[in-house]
Design a protein around this nucleic acid. Structure first.
Lengths: 158, 158
DNA sequence: TTTACTGCAAATATTTTGCAATATC
DNA sequence: GATATTGCAAAATATTTGCAGTAAA
């Protein structure tokens, strides 16, 4: 699907979710959704807030928090906590078929795709639990930090 | 392995880690490790701090934070962020072969085991990344919240 | 004896909340 | 017109940090 169509589609999804819950279609909600889908990468609330400001759209931090929660509820974005204290998010469209490699040294996050594993996880059923999605995090050391670690092991500890 | 032997084993592991890094073997570190392994369930730092107090062992919150970080570094405990702002931890012994079902409504967390999936994930290799462990979180609604949700959908939204 | 570690309190970071003003339905 | 939502600021929550005193090596 083309990016433009994706935006239309997710806006429509938000609209129908708001309808179904009797919530209001405020311009802020659609502006934030649009910004997130244009970004198309991980973000935290503060970064999103700043990007909105810079792009000339004035919203309060509280509204960004509220809206991000709302978008998580209707599964248009996915929440992550990669190990730092701050929550991270990403758009949900095409997001549920990848998982994340997290470097425990530099906190860098990269994405990995695996169709088979994804299908397996998507189709898994649980007792007394209605699954809507999953997050798989692989922890370890990235290329750069493995090298750093190796050279540190040669230094003397006192 | 029996619980007593597990405790001996992880204490020895901590000891050798501290040696290898030139860090000190303080009684606090071993007391905290012991408490965690005796608990044998998920915990957050504040709960652990309170349990230590109640059990009569006085440590500062700062030391609990420091020690928990240390234990994560040497892979004796595993860090989780289940979606709330607070980090959760659990002992690593026998912990890496299960994953978590998280109810997005009531935040309740339950454990699931799947040998095959675990083996698959443990043995997976990545390009330019040295994996040490993984966390798999399945999000959805638990039994109780599915029912609550169902009855709410029958109420009128205005 | 050296300095890593602890405890305490203050500082920081992130998120939530209360309330008056505003805008959607 | 009723009330959900916004913006702002203050509060709450979770974690980190600085520093003086203590204790491990």
């Amino acid at each position: 699907m083309e990016e433009n169509n994706i935006l239309e589609s997710v806006s429509a999804q938000l609209s129908s979710y708001l309808n179904s819950k009797g919530l209001r279609k405020t311009p802020e909600r659609f502006a934030i959704l649009e910004q997130i889908y244009n970004l198309n990468r991980h973000f935290d609330v503060d970064t999103l807030y700043e990007i909105m400001q810079e792009s000339g759209y004035r919203v309060s931090r509280a509204t960004v928090y509220n809206t991000v929660d709302l978008l998580v509820e209707c599964h248009l974005i996915v929440k992550h906590q990669f190990g730092t204290n701050m929550a991270h998010y990403e758009r949900a469209f095409n997001a549920d078929n990848h998982f994340h490699l997290i470097c425990t040294n530099c906190n860098n996050v990269t994405e990995v795709k695996d169709e088979d594993l994804n299908n397996q996880l998507q189709n898994k059923k649980y007792k007394d639990f209605d699954a809507t999605g999953y997050n798989l995090y692989i922890y370890g050391l990235c290329h750069k930090c493995v090298e750093k670690d190796r050279s540190n092991d040669n230094t003397i500890h006192n």
